[in-house]
């Protein structure tokens, strides 16, 4: 076999294997029970939608919340999720579903960054917004996905997609408790970045989202989830909250000091299941939710 024939065989075989694998993985992705596969392949029609980054995942435990309220909720949070991506995902959600009554948004996702975006490349075929954002912010990844179709499934998110193939991913939450030696080693100055000043661009995106959702009759409730006592700095948190209030005219539900028992934390910045139960009961007492539950039970 000549060199040219060998190289052509190599390239042809590569594309063939790649195509076959990508077709199979795409089927798996579409049938998975993970939140965003459900978003793009099922009708969800939730009463309440939770969004946020990893703090959103571990603060809003939707199965417990549903039991408590009798409502139907979905948590669309994901590790590292930021507001432009939240915006795209919620737009896609609203295109495919009835508008929810309330959207809870964990405010630490108010950042204008795109680091987590490559995880969503498997949904490029479903979402024009994700496709365009990838093209703009990750052109290498965008164009590489034309060379290899399997490449779009190369992400931590896809491993989760497989894990939740038949399992309800809404039960995804930290179930462990912060280690005592780790807690002792935490230096307060290290993680105040979590509630540092919000970028103007992130705030603009959020303001636009709030305005649009208001028009659709959706109540948007920003929530600042619990912060470990060692990281709490009242002045910084007050400034952070007033910044959101001033810009969006929304009252932030400040739960930053709602949890003081460290056994309710999984690590320095995330609550665990026990902490999430406490958060759910705090949110349940909000007037917006009380009204909603009364209306629902009345219906």
């Amino acid at each position: 076999m000549t060199l040219a024939k060998k190289l052509i065989t190599l390239i042809f075989t590569f594309f063939l294997i790649d195509l076959l694998i990508s077709i199979s993985l795409s089927e798996l992705s579409n049938s998975s029970k993970i939140r965003f596969s459900r978003l793009y392949n099922e009708e969800i029609n939730a009463d309440i939608v939770f969004v946020g980054d990893s703090r959103g995942i571990n603060s809003f435990y939707s199965p417990y919340f549903d039991d408590l309220t009798g409502l139907n909720s979905i948590n669309l949070s994901y590790n590292g999720l930021t507001i432009p991506i939240v915006n795209a995902l919620l737009d896609d959600y609203l295109e495919r579903n009835k508008a929810p009554k309330i959207i809870f948004i964990e405010t630490t996702c108010l950042k204008d960054t795109y680091n987590v975006l490559p995880n969503f490349k498997q949904y490029m075929a479903h979402s024009l917004s994700i496709k365009n954002m990838l093209k703009e912010h990750y052109p290498n990844i965008f164009y590489a996905s034309f060379i290899s179709k399997s490449y779009i499934f190369n992400s931590e998110y896809f491993l989760r997609t497989l894990y939740y193939l038949k399992k309800n991913d809404q039960k995804w939450i930290n179930r462990y408790t912060i280690r005592k030696d780790y807690y002792d080693s935490i230096k307060p100055e290290n993680n105040l970045k979590m509630v540092e000043k919000i970028d103007d661009s992130a705030m603009i995106i959020f303001k636009i989202m709030v305005t649009e959702y208001r028009k659709k009759g959706i109540v948007v409730i920003p929530v600042l989830a619990p912060i470990l006592d060692k990281y709490r700095n009242e002045t910084v948190i007050d400034n952070y909250i007033s910044d959101i209030n001033t810009n969006t005219k929304l009252d932030v539900v400040d739960l930053s000091d709602a949890v003081n028992d460290i056994s309710m934390f999984a690590d320095a910045v995330h609550t665990n299941e026990k902490g999430a139960h406490l958060i759910a009961s705090k949110l349940y007492n909000l007037p917006e939710l009380k009204n909603l539950t009364i209306t629902s039970s009345g219906q």
Binding site: K6, T9, L10, I11, T13, F14, L16, I17, D18, I21, S148, S150, Y151, F153, N154
Partner: peptide, 15 residues
């Protein structure tokens, strides 16, 4: 050889 190399390339793309 070609099959092995092509398979590896797909594996590299995927993982």
């Amino acid at each position: 050889t070609m099959l092995w190399s092509a398979g590896l390339l797909v594996f590299i793309a995927l993982f």
